[in-house]
Computed example of a mutant assay.
Amino acid sequence: MSFRAIEKVFRNNHAHWVGDGFRVKQYFPLNQPETFYQRFSPFILLDYNEPFFFRATPFEVGVGPHPHRGFETVTFAFAGKVEHGDNLGNSGVIEPGDIQWMTAGGGILHKEYHEKEFSKKDRILHMIQLWVNLPRKDKMTNPKYQAITADQMGKYFSEDERFKLIVYAGEVNGINGPASTFSPMNIYKVDIAKGRTETFLEPADYNTGLLVLAGEVKINGDSSAKATDFVLFENDGKPFNITGVEEHSEVFILSGQPLNEPVVQSGPFVMSTREELRQAAHDFKSGKFGSLDF
């Protein structure tokens, strides 16, 4: 059997701080050409906060109120607790296995912190924030918020528990994820034991990549990928497989149908034209997104 070829492996060793609560490695768009917006559409940004130890503090730790327009922010919690609040009154805390899926649409202000009691303890935070582009026709849609808990996810556990599949969005091997999306995509996590091999098939036109969260795996039987490696596949319509190398490995997989539309990004805004970016900045500065006091 021939497999979906690997186009590139990103090994990002540089981390930076987002606010004072998230120490992230950004795989894209940082250090990627502007054409990468099309290459990995509809996914715009991937920030990975690998497991990181924080000391206890009585103070808020995170990112204060800030705007977004034109896309969705999706936060996946693997360890720790993240608290969200926005100026539309949505709020919630995500714990390990949960996700929060915020559609910024036409404009929203939000903030993200370590949950208050969690921040008072020595702790480990492990999470991903993903930005998902909206189709041009939906960029000014009404903002909304999906709080999805671990028990709502689509799941498959093998009888020997050497393979676990968690589906957040889309459909994978007959398992459906709960998230509502504006364009077709499959987002899922694989937990795999040493020596176990599992095969996955994504549509030929879907842009597909994976991030190794823990351990080490073989891709297609020969290419090794270790924790914090991001693997981008070619779009050749072939299956790919994952084999566990260490006793326990975890892999996060993104696959989505490209929007095939113009993309421009500036700070917290992702639009289709430069004029739309200027309008977004003007609307924020003139108060049309609402008050930062929430």
Rank of each mutant, 00 (worst) to 15 (best):
G154M: 08
I124N: 13
L109M: 07
N90K: 04
P143W: 08
I99F: 10
A147H: 11
K111L: 02
I124V: 14
G105M: 03
N133I: 08
A150T: 07
I148E: 05
Y113V: 12
G170C: 12
T103C: 02
H126K: 12
I94F: 08
G92P: 00
P135Q: 04
L134V: 06
K111S: 02
P143S: 07
I94G: 02
V167N: 13
K116Y: 06
M127S: 13
L165C: 13
H126Q: 09
Y156V: 04
N142G: 10
G89C: 07
A169V: 11
H114A: 00
S91V: 01
M140Q: 11
I128C: 10
E112S: 06
L134A: 05
Q146M: 12
P96H: 03
S158H: 09
R123P: 12
Y168Q: 12
S91P: 05
T141I: 07
R162F: 08
V172I: 05
L125Q: 15
P96Y: 02
E117D: 02
P96I: 01
I99D: 06
Q152I: 03
Y156L: 06
H110Y: 03
W131I: 09
W101N: 02
K121E: 11
S158A: 03
A104Y: 13
N90M: 04
G89Q: 05
T103H: 01
G105I: 04
G92S: 00
E117G: 00
H114D: 01
R136N: 04
E115R: 01
I94H: 01
G174F: 14
D122C: 00
F163I: 05
E112I: 00
Q100P: 03
E161K: 15
E159F: 12
K137V: 06
T149D: 09
L130V: 08
L109S: 06
D122P: 01
K121L: 10
E117K: 02
H110Q: 03
K144W: 15
K155D: 05
V93S: 05
A147V: 14
H126E: 07
D98H: 01
E112H: 13
W131S: 14
Q100E: 08
H110G: 05
N142K: 12
G174E: 12
M102L: 02
H110W: 03
D138S: 15
V172G: 04
A147D: 15
K139V: 11
V132I: 10
V93Q: 06
N90T: 03
M102Q: 01
F118R: 09
H110E: 05
W131R: 11
E117F: 07
Q146N: 14
N133K: 13
V167R: 11
G106T: 06
L134C: 14
P143K: 04
R162N: 05
A150K: 12
K116E: 05
P135E: 13
Q129I: 08
W131D: 15
E171R: 05
